[in-house]
Design a protein around this nucleic acid. Structure first.
Lengths: 226, 226
DNA sequence: AAAATTAAATTTGTATACAATTATATTATA
DNA sequence: TATAATATAATTGTATACAAATTTAATTTT
């Protein structure tokens, strides 16, 4: 993780690095995390490292076992479904709230991300598509002005990212047309301020994205312990 | 530092104590929390105390300001509404899921809590009522078998408890009949496994409880900074 | 006296030493 | 050999000392 203008504490640094490594599967699910080893690796002491670990625990990316040892939270289809069911509700909620509060300027910003998504689809650049898709969802979350929902969604997003990795979203053949069309449709109803429709569409969008991940895992489930 | 039957780490102990004090308004909203002072008070060192503070921060009960100082999260009507809106969705979700998975034994356990709630209403013991009401909701959450949802609901419950305190729920005149009837109705549909109705009723139940708190605050809002 | 500067104190952030616990290896015993 | 008991090593949990940063007080300058 890069640091910007503000100095980053060792604890924050460790948190960012570990989170990224877990999401990117550099640490395998269920793998043991040893404080001493990680501290030496990151060239910090155990004190700030532990802070980072405990934050990750509360976000559900690592688990403290009964004996005190930390492991990377295992991945299971069951948990993936849980995460997506909750995410479906939360994304539906913020979309509804955003629909009631969005300014014209916000709508323009959404249009921009969609334009960029279109270009990504044309070039079959799924990485870029994902980036702009996340911007799209991020703008909607922002416009909900619901900090509580935003906080939870951030935690869910971390887990979602890991499941995306596991399902092999990097594959260029990954279907991008469906999510693009769904985004366009959502924007349409956001413009009309039809909050109920927006909520329903957003929920269907998330529901469908879980299906995609489930299918990719089904065909692709050699490497991870499902 | 005290210990119970199962050994409690100093960090866990500090977490529990601080959480309780914040919820019970022994620490005022927006009050400064000094590590050294708290550590001396709890008779532990700063190391485990800080762990506790960081956990509370992630749960939204304390906030770390830009200068690094910790304050008790301020209370606002706006946040209360956010918390309840999210809680409404989550309680609706777990109720729906529980409805699909509940055993006869679980239903009996719910009946028991309702019996105890009835007795509490008869005697106008709102403290007892609240306790059994939380058991009622806890059983439903448990039966959802959705750990992700349960984790979030636990965090929300902490904030809800504080808002209940602020609204002065201790008042014996506090109306208990409405929530009791709502619980009874929810149980009825749980027995019939009508998951859609269960979800709708639970959501209405939470929505109504926010209204109660808003009203109590409106008449009672001298002491806290709304 | 007001504003700016410096100095002292308070407070948070980190490293390290040690204590308590848990896991692993070794030995003893049947 | 298999099992239990014990010793050893590895790992987590806590306290403390010190460093870095921030706030408050004191001093100087205009």
């Amino acid at each position: 993780m890069k640091k910007t203008s503000k100095r980053l504490s060792a604890a924050d640094y460790a948190y960012e690095v570990l989170k990224e490594r877990i999401i990117e599967l550099q640490y395998q699910p269920a793998e043991h995390l040893l404080e001493d080893q990680l501290a030496k690796d990151l060239e910090i002491s155990r004190t700030p490292l532990r802070q980072a670990l405990y934050r990750l625990e509360l976000e559900g990316l690592v688990n403290k076992q009964a004996n005190g040892r930390m492991i990377v939270t295992p991945v299971t289809l069951e948990e993936a479904r849980e995460v997506f069911v909750v995410r479906e509700m939360m994304e539906g909620l913020v979309a509804k709230e955003a629909s009631e509060r969005m300014s014209q300027d916000d709508l323009y910003r959404l249009e921009d991300t969609i334009e960029l998504m279109k270009r990504a689809v044309e070039r079959a650049r799924s990485q870029d598509f994902l980036k702009h898709s996340e911007e799209f969802h991020g703008i909607i979350q922002e416009c909900s002005h619901n900090d509580t929902a935003k906080r939870f969604l951030l935690q869910l997003e971390n887990k979602v990212d890991r499941y995306r990795r596991i399902s092999g979203y990097k594959n260029p053949a990954y279907a991008l047309n469906t999510p693009l069309e769904e985004h366009i449709e959502i924007l349409q109803f956001l413009k009309e301020k039809s909050s109920k429709e927006v909520e329903d569409l957003m929920r269907a969008h998330i529901r469908r994205s879980l299906k995609t991940i489930e299918e990719t895992i089904a065909t692709n489930s050699s490497s991870h312990s499902f």
